[in-house]
């Protein structure tokens, strides 16, 4: 059995440059596509005329709410477990309370009309800013 296989001999054995031109192009390509993706999301956000909060669980929309009214929503139930408390306050949305194991949804940054999303992976819950141009349907939640 060879101690080191040929590819790493090729990479290390020859006194080639540590950082090659091909590396630079590869890394630049990835960086560029990230930036493009970022710009794309920014562009998408600016196209939202009437931002609303869309709450979905298990991939299905469970409620749509305007950002203008302050309110507190309970998703799931505290008794049976698996709940998140969503608060809309001064146009900012946060998850203030949850019983998920990691609580990273509670720690995540508030979102507002500029767009973005908050996710609670254990509860498969997604809060996102959507376009409510078609009129806000009556909010229904648990």
């Amino acid at each position: 059995m060879a101690r080191t296989d040929s590819a790493s001999e090729k990479a290390l054995g020859s006194r080639r440059k540590t950082f090659r031109r091909a590396d630079l192009w590869l890394l630049l390509l990835i960086a560029l596509s990230s930036v493009l993706l970022f710009v794309f999301f920014l562009w998408k956000d600016t196209r939202i005329r009437t931002p609303v909060l869309e709450i979905s669980q298990d991939g299905q929309v469970v409620g749509v709410y305007p950002l203008s009214e302050d309110r507190e929503l309970l998703i799931g139930s505290k008794e049976s477990g698996g709940y998140n408390v969503v608060r809309i306050e001064n146009g900012k949305i946060r998850i203030t309370e949850a019983d998920c194991p990691d609580r990273s949804c509670v720690r995540s940054i508030a979102i507002d009309r500029r767009g973005g999303s908050i996710i609670c992976l254990p509860h498969r819950l997604v809060l996102r800013i959507a376009d409510g141009a078609g009129g806000i349907p009556d909010a229904v939640a648990e």
């Binding site: 298990d58 991939g59 999303s117 996710i119 992976l121 498969r124 819950l125 997604v126 996102r128």
Partner: peptide, 8 residues
């Protein structure tokens, strides 16, 4: 999550 929000 069944959503694309995370791609952000």
């Amino acid at each position: 999550t069944g959503g694309t929000g995370i791609f952000r």
